[in-house]
Amino acid sequence: MLHVDLVVSIHGHGPRHLRADIPQGGTLALFGPSGSGKTTLLRALAGFHEARGTLSWDGRELITEPVETRPFAWMPQAPSLFPHWTLLRQLVEARPGRTADARLDTLISALGLTTLTDRPGRRLSGGQQQRGELARALARDPDVLLLDEPFSALDAPTRSAIGAFLRDLLRSEEKSMVLASHDWNDVEAWADEVILLDQGQTVAQGEPGALYAAPPNWPAARMMGFECRIGNRALHPDLAEWSTPHGCPVVLTGRVGDVTPHGAGVRVTISCADGTTVRASVPRGVSRPAMGDRVEVGFHAPEVVDDVS
């Protein structure tokens, strides 16, 4: 288990407390907009940024250890393959034994790098570099992966293929992971626990599904995509209910404005008589309202206690 109880000073935001326990095989997500301190916290875990407190892996205290002996693999957000070495060479040199072994072959083929191994880092595109970096991080065979926006440069099919491979690997080898992401979908897909960060501050912390179902405060709700408040209820476009609105805690009537594609369905803007404007997703299979239509829609809106701070 990775035990984290750290005070990290985040540039411009002062000292911040980071506390989490990540079991073996578990994933912690750091979620927030850019500038919220995800990268700094990840760097503090890796050992690049000064931190005070406790950081231990299975009882082994890591805070006094230098970067190079911590049982982590760190993948920064910016492209970081060594420009002067071929991809194969940097993968081999990242292996603890520094030999091209069967595991390396598995990584190379699983991450779609077979045809790229002879190329120097400087000749690889952003997406290719990202896959190469992931391979290099995994080649190190760490106990904990520290990944900073690891899928940001990947196209959707590659993303899902690599996601499936990584998930298998994490499960079969019981690796732990700390993932920094600004995408709530990633958080829901990967994390057992998430820390919502805003300007270096922990806004909420918990299991992603539970936080989404019952946001502990309004800033947290906003970060997860809740767009407005009616009374003490938070409204998320994806939690609109069209077929049986009257069972919902919030029911609105209004006129449809904008209609834009969203996933398999559409998203509509609804202007109510009292001047409030809300957005609601219309999933596939529900009859689509047209612009100007008068509609009635319910929201499965969780109750949100006012700001904690």
């Binding site: 970067v67 190079e68 693999a73 920064p76 060594f82 603890p96 190190r140």
Partner: peptide
């Protein structure tokens, strides 16, 4: 600096 940091994170002295 990033390249040097990554190298350290790979466990290199």
């Amino acid at each position: 600096l990033l390249y040097r940091e990554v190298a350290r994170s790979l466990g290199w002295r």
